[in-house]
Computed example of a mutant assay.
Amino acid sequence: MPLVPTQELFAVTPLAAGAFNTVLLEQLEAILAGATRAGLPVIVQISENAVAYRGALAPLAAAARTAIEAAGIPAALHLDHATRPDLIEEAVACGFTSVMYDGAHLPWAENIARTREITGRCHRRGVFVEAELGEVGGKDGAHAPGVRTDPGEAARFVAETGVDALAVAVGSSHRMTERTAAIDLELVRALRAAVPVPLVLHGSSGVDDATLAAVVRAGMRKINMSTLLNTVFTGAARDSLESAPETVDPRTYLRPAREAMADRVARLLTLLNSSPAPPAVP
């Protein structure tokens, strides 16, 4: 199936879009296999950090486009947490359907100015833009401990930049390996009432299943996930290697890792798009 424009993917997603990061080809395959099992749309994400690891954007982007086109479910391709305008330009040229410009580390006025400029350039190419509102007057970013997004400031930021989606700080943090984040659901509801574009939850790996379902009911429309899926993938690979330490063929341990991640993707997508929510995933 051809790439689906990100704005159209929101239209065909029942409740909230699952957006999952890939670094390896096996993870890309797992995301699409999981979405196919769930019968639900998905957003495949490639982050600036993943590009740095691989040394270039184009090869992984080409693999993602090819895999998505071969899949039987609607999927969009998103550049995650890009701080470099040149990388955003490259992603647009590579056919990404959306990008996230992360200017949350910048002072308020500079973040608005840069985000507005990038949004204008992307919109002229038909590309959906997500942005992040940092702590006003600070440079710690929207997901530093204790930071919370003010609804009034969020509404102003969207109005002044023209972005299509906004990542907000409501209690989650990146790279959490324990699912113990305390989410402010009242703040989510207040942001949903104040902001006219889809809200995005980053750092969702630290949020337990029941809270993820509640966050969606409160108004989140895009749920980003990376660390939890990396944990599942790596855990399955580790188990395989520990059970057969003589293994040298990487397919032997990457196959169960891919399968475990695909299963978790399917269950997460079902969780995010079920009402009421299904039982928690252990």
Rank of each mutant, 00 (worst) to 15 (best):
L199V: 08
N224T: 10
A244L: 11
V200Y: 08
P198C: 10
L201A: 11
R192P: 06
V215A: 14
V216E: 07
A236H: 05
A210L: 04
V232K: 15
T247D: 04
S243T: 14
I223N: 09
R192K: 15
G219I: 04
P198H: 05
L201F: 03
V197E: 06
A214Q: 13
P198N: 12
V215G: 01
P196A: 12
D209A: 06
D209C: 08
L185R: 12
T234H: 13
R192D: 09
K222F: 09
R238N: 11
T234I: 12
E186I: 06
M225S: 13
T227K: 07
G203D: 13
T234A: 14
L191E: 10
N224I: 11
G206S: 09
H202Y: 07
N230D: 07
T211M: 13
L185D: 03
A214T: 03
V232C: 09
I223S: 02
V200D: 10
R238W: 06
L229E: 02
R238P: 01
P250N: 04
M220V: 15
S240K: 09
N230R: 15
A237N: 02
D249K: 04
V216S: 03
A190I: 03
R221L: 11
A194Y: 06
M220T: 06
S240Y: 00
P245L: 14
E186S: 13
D239L: 12
V215C: 15
I223A: 01
A236M: 03
V197D: 06
V248R: 15
A193S: 14
N230I: 09
T211C: 08
A190W: 05
S205L: 07
G203I: 03
K222Y: 07
E242Y: 10
V248P: 02
A210P: 00
M225V: 15
F233S: 10
T234C: 10
E186L: 10
P196E: 08
R192Y: 01
R192N: 09
V195M: 04
S240V: 00
T247L: 14
T231Q: 15
L201T: 03
L185M: 10
R251M: 08
L228D: 14
V232Q: 12
T227Q: 05
R217H: 09
V216G: 01
M225G: 08
A236T: 07
A210T: 08
L228E: 14
L229F: 14
L199Q: 12
T211A: 02
S205C: 11
V195I: 05
L187E: 04
L201N: 04
V248W: 05
P245A: 07
M225N: 12
D209Q: 06
N224D: 10
R189W: 00
L241N: 05
R251V: 01
R217S: 09
G235A: 08
L241M: 15
G235I: 11
E246C: 02
R251Y: 11
A193F: 02
A244F: 06
V232S: 09
A210Q: 13
L199H: 13
V195W: 04
S205M: 07
P198D: 06
V232T: 15
R192G: 05
R221V: 08
D249F: 04
G219E: 01
T211L: 06
P245G: 14
P250Y: 06
V215K: 01
L185Q: 04
A190H: 05
E246G: 15
A244V: 07
L187I: 03
R221C: 05
P250W: 09
V207R: 00
A210Y: 04
M220E: 03
R189L: 00
T231W: 12
H202M: 09
